[in-house]
Each structure stands twice: as C-alpha cells, then as structure tokens.
Simulated scan of single mutants.
Amino acid sequence: MFDPTTSKPVGGANSTRRTVQNAILATLPEQQFALFRPHLRAVPLKLNEVLQDALRYPDAAYFIESGVVSRMVRTARDGPVEVAVVGKFGFVGVSLVLGAKQTIQRSVVRVPGSALRIDADAFRDILQQSPQTREHLLRYVQLLLALNAQIALCNARHDISERVARWMLLAQDRIGGDRIPVTHGLIATALGVRRPGVSKALSDLEANGIITGGRGSIRIRDMERLRGQACECERILKDRFRVFRDMPHYHHRVV
C-alpha cells in the first residue's frame, strides 16, 4: 500500500510535479482523480488565514496537504471554539459536497502548511459528473459529523489538561514529526478556554518530561505518556479515520 505521508515525488529535485499528500485525494482511483488534476493549484496556508467564513458562500475547496485547520463556531458572548481539526486526512469545503449555499463554520489555519485548492464551480462540476467521487467525499463528511459530536462531548465533559493533550495528539497526527508549531494562546483559542488554564496544563506536562516548550512551538518527548494524559476522545477520533488510512493509496501527482 502506498503511504502518501512518506512518499517522495518522482522526477528529482528539479521536478515541478508533486505527489499528492492529502488522503482524500490519494485514495481516489486514477480515473476519478483525473477529473481533479487540471483544476488543482498548490497554495500556502498562512497562520490565522481564514479559508472559509461562516454564513458565506464558499469560492473554493481546500484539500489539506500539510498543516492544521480548525473548524470553529462562535457566539457573540462566548467567542470561538473549535469543533473539528482538519489536516491531511480531510478537506475544507464540505458545504459544496452537501449542495449548501453557505458554510456553517469558520475554517482558520492554526498550523501553517499547504493545500491543493480547487474553485467551487469546478468542484461542483466534478461531483455532478462522478457520483462515485461524491460518495467518496461523503465518507469524509460522515466522519466529520462524528468528529464534531465527539469534540462537543469532550469540550463539555473533560478537563482542560485532558483536552490539551488530546488537541496536541490530533495535531501531531495530522502534521507528523514530534514538533508542533503552536503557542499557548493558539491552543486556548482553539479549545475556547482561558490561556492560564492551557499554560498550567502544558507546564505540568513539561515538568513530567512529556513535552518540551519552546518559543512558538511544543516538542513531544514521550508520545505514549502524552496519550496517557489525554481523554479517550483522542483514540476514538483517530480510530474513526482508519477508513482512509487503510484504503489503497495511489501515486497521484500534480503540478
């Protein structure tokens, strides 16, 4: 099975083609992916960039190649809170798949990276041409709904320290490696809690040798012990995405 998280583009250092890293696209058979190829454009994801805003008509979909995007909801009184974490196992643009005219949630870049962007009109045309592709993408939509529900439960029932550990593990799963380029304030915003609570949780983890804090980043030193500090939501959320981890991955390349 081809693993898009570890593959290297064919063609050497001077090649202008790149191997697709996004699991949703990488698990499409070639005939279906060929519909996307002419329309995909590699774009950088900048910190705090808003890819889609709530109650707006989306102009594009983004298949995340690297980095982390938060799907947020908010109220005027309570401010924003994260309801889903999107990375290389997902995409931003669910409302287009569902045929909705507006997005419900705001999608904000929390960890910089890159994505493959496709204009909304081209995306809709592909979904109309290929029911199989729409069905494939709806599998992710179903997972995202489960993700929203699980994180809502987590936010309501679990301690800040458990949620901080859960957030870092999910971010690491989408980024790869042991270093997460985030600040205390960013995690606090994502979880919808005050920064001192996050700082206390991170300080305790560092005192126990589980993580190392740095300027604008956190390094995970002991993954297993960090999992021991997280609530069971981390395992549940990761297991749900095995459907895309276990599917055959193809060597799709784009310019």
Rank of each mutant, 00 (worst) to 15 (best):
A61N: 00
H252W: 09
L98P: 06
R37F: 13
M1R: 09
E206K: 11
S130L: 14
R245I: 14
H184D: 02
P80D: 00
A149Y: 08
T75F: 06
P29I: 14
R124C: 08
R215G: 05
R106W: 04
D239P: 11
G214I: 08
P4G: 00
Q150A: 13
H158W: 15
K238I: 13
Y57W: 08
E224N: 05
E234N: 05
G185V: 11
L137D: 03
A54K: 05
A188R: 01
E135M: 07
V182P: 07
P181K: 03
R124S: 07
V97M: 06
R253N: 02
E30C: 07
L143Y: 04
P38K: 08
R174G: 00
R71S: 03
A23L: 15
N155M: 15
A188N: 00
Q31M: 12
F244M: 06
F63C: 07
Q128R: 14
L144Y: 05
D78S: 09
C233Y: 11
V43P: 05
G99A: 12
A165R: 07
I126Y: 11
R227I: 10
A54T: 01
Q105N: 03
E162S: 08
A54D: 00
H184L: 08
L202H: 02
A120M: 02
N14E: 13
S130P: 15
A61I: 01
L237E: 08
L205N: 02
I24Y: 09
L47S: 07
H249L: 12
H251Q: 03
V254A: 02
F91S: 04
G113Y: 13
H252L: 06
L98Q: 11
R194Y: 04
N22T: 10
D178L: 13
E234H: 09
V254K: 00
P112T: 10
P58T: 09
V198K: 07
P248A: 13
L143E: 00
L98Y: 12
D204A: 14
L25M: 11
F89Y: 04
Q102H: 14
A76M: 14
R174C: 08
Y250V: 05
P58Q: 10
D53L: 11
E234K: 06
S203R: 05
G79F: 04
G87Y: 12
Y57C: 09
L191R: 10
R163L: 08
A152S: 07
A54E: 03
L40E: 02
S161T: 03
D204K: 13
V68Q: 01
A23D: 04
